[in-house]
Simulated scan of single mutants.
Amino acid sequence: MTTRRAFLAGLAMASLPRLTWADVGNPAFLAAAKSASGFVLHGLSEQGQSLFSLPLPARGHAACAHPTRALAVAFARRPGTFALVIDCASGAVLHQLDPPAGRHFNGHGVFSADGSVLMTSEVVAETSAGRIGLWDASGFRRIGEWDSGGIGPHDIKLLPDGRLVVANGGIQTTPNGRTELNIEAMRPNLTILSEGAIVDRAELAPEYHQNSIRHLALLPDAIACAMQWHGDPADPVPLLGLWKPGQAPELCPAPEAMGLAMKGYAGSIAATNGRIAVTSAPGGLVMVFDATGAPLASHFRADMCGIAAMGTDFIATDGLGAAWHLGEEGLTLLGKQPVAWDNHLIALG
Results as ranks from 00 to 15, higher is better:
7 F>R: 15
8 L>T: 10
11 L>Y: 01
18 R>Q: 15
27 P>K: 04
29 F>E: 00
30 L>H: 10
31 A>N: 15
39 F>S: 14
40 V>K: 02
46 E>M: 07
46 E>L: 07
48 G>N: 12
56 L>V: 10
56 L>F: 01
58 A>Q: 13
63 A>G: 00
67 P>H: 07
69 R>H: 12
69 R>F: 14
72 A>H: 07
73 V>D: 03
78 R>A: 13
82 F>I: 08
83 A>K: 03
92 A>T: 09
95 H>W: 11
99 P>Q: 06
99 P>Y: 03
102 G>T: 04
105 F>G: 04
107 G>I: 05
109 G>I: 08
109 G>L: 06
112 S>G: 06
115 G>R: 03
119 M>L: 15
119 M>H: 08
126 E>F: 05
130 G>T: 13
132 I>Y: 02
132 I>W: 03
133 G>C: 05
136 D>G: 01
138 S>V: 09
139 G>H: 02
141 R>M: 05
145 E>M: 02
151 I>L: 07
151 I>S: 04
157 K>G: 01
162 G>F: 01
165 V>I: 08
166 V>P: 07
167 A>F: 00
172 Q>P: 00
173 T>E: 03
173 T>G: 00
175 P>Y: 04
176 N>W: 05
183 I>A: 01
189 N>S: 13
191 T>C: 15
201 R>V: 12
203 E>N: 12
204 L>V: 13
211 N>E: 11
214 R>Q: 10
224 A>K: 06
225 C>S: 04
227 M>A: 05
228 Q>G: 02
229 W>G: 01
236 P>T: 07
257 A>N: 02
268 S>C: 14
269 I>V: 10
272 T>V: 15
279 T>V: 11
281 A>Y: 07
285 L>V: 14
293 G>I: 06
320 L>M: 12
322 A>S: 08
333 L>P: 01
337 Q>F: 01
341 W>M: 14
346 I>C: 14
